[in-house]
Design a protein around this nucleic acid. Structure first.
Lengths: 191, 191
DNA sequence: TGTAATTGAGTGATTGTTCACTTATATTAT
DNA sequence: ATAATATAAGTGAACAATCACTCAATTACA
């Protein structure tokens, strides 16, 4: 890694850690600089603004996650296998870089509005898999957005509580349960 | 309602609406005052600071929701009935004052840390119900925090997506599905 | 020696909060 | 009833602190 690249990476990592710990608005550029062991002005060699830095961080992860999930899903055949693959991929992604993951999780509402419609989207990937399975008769037909949201919640809520410090250990350790539970949600029959 | 109480209520409602629309940090006291049709200084007759105003709003709702859920749960016998009661109570609570509900949902991470341990807590209510049911053999035994989180996610994630504008209509319309899905999650068998 | 990288004091705009003062409402005295 | 007085509510300009961002000067390095 070149020196410049190294500095840029240090800025990103410092910002990320502080953003998660104290929130984006509550983190100052001075703090970021201190945490990265550089001067405040150096941030602006690599990022045009604090906001853009925050957005870049979010969008890059958002896209990469969506693509990873799409790839994992594509390799599996049948809904049950696709759920397993998606859940496992998601958990591993979270465990690999927990700070980045937490940042993405806690700041969806700030950035999700600004995401261009054509960018890969983790939720859309899941929604499409579910809509397909409904069409194929693998699970009961119902509002696909609703079903996707409920199934996603089975994984996201435990992840959120882990961010809050309610859990310890890796998310992957529970991947089996998450997949079983998500499947159970989708298989719920209309009465 | 006295004049003072009316003014205080107007400040709270204005703040709430702006906090949800633009975020707490991004909302200025000037904007709150304008939206409430009062002078900026008047805010400080009723609240010591903007932060305290935000915290008050959150905590009051947090406690009230927890107590409502505890009460709803108490009246029902057996896990299945308790889930129905909790989910229904939660959905109605959300539909009754959606702005307040959205505020609570979107700002958990900011305030949950500052909540005193002895205050009624919506999550704890659910967790206790589930732990009891495990003890009684109504559902398989597993980590109660994990099971609670997953079950809660089934409702919270759709609610979150409704805040983002992905859904329209009342949350209560889906209460039946949420309850069925939460039950299905809790009933998942160890393999 | 010349280019790229870094520094950090300085800047201007923003924002939460204060406070001296005005206006409205309630209470008491005549 | 009416005036006099006291209290409560409301105002908005002014203040002090903060913060994102700039830039002239300095350092690293090839």
């Amino acid at each position: 890694m070149g020196k410049a690249e190294d500095t840029k990476a240090r800025v990103e990592r410092a910002a990320l850690t502080l953003f998660v710990a104290r929130g984006v608005a509550e983190t100052t550029t001075k703090e970021i600089a201190m945490a990265a062991s550089i001067a405040e002005g150096t941030i602006y060699r690599y990022f045009p603004s604090k906001e853009q830095l925050a957005r870049d961080l979010f969008l890059r992860h958002h896209r990469a996650l969506a693509e990873a999930l799409a790839e994992a899903q594509r390799a599996a055949k049948g809904l049950r296998a696709k759920i397993d693959a998606i859940v496992r991929c998601y958990c591993e992604w979270a465990d690999r870089d927990w700070t980045l993951f937490a940042y993405h999780l806690l700041n969806q509402h700030s950035f999700l509005i600004q995401v261009p419609d054509d960018t890969p989207n983790p939720v859309t990937v899941v929604r499409e898999v579910i809509a397909q399975a409904m069409k194929a008769g693998e699970i009961p037909r119902r509002n696909a957005d609703l079903a996707a949201a409920a199934a996603i919640g089975v994984v996201l809520q435990p992840a959120t509580y882990k961010v809050y410090g309610r859990f310890t250990g890796l998310l992957s350790e529970h991947a089996r349960f998450f997949a079983d539970a998500a499947w159970a949600v989708l298989a719920v029959k209309e009465k």
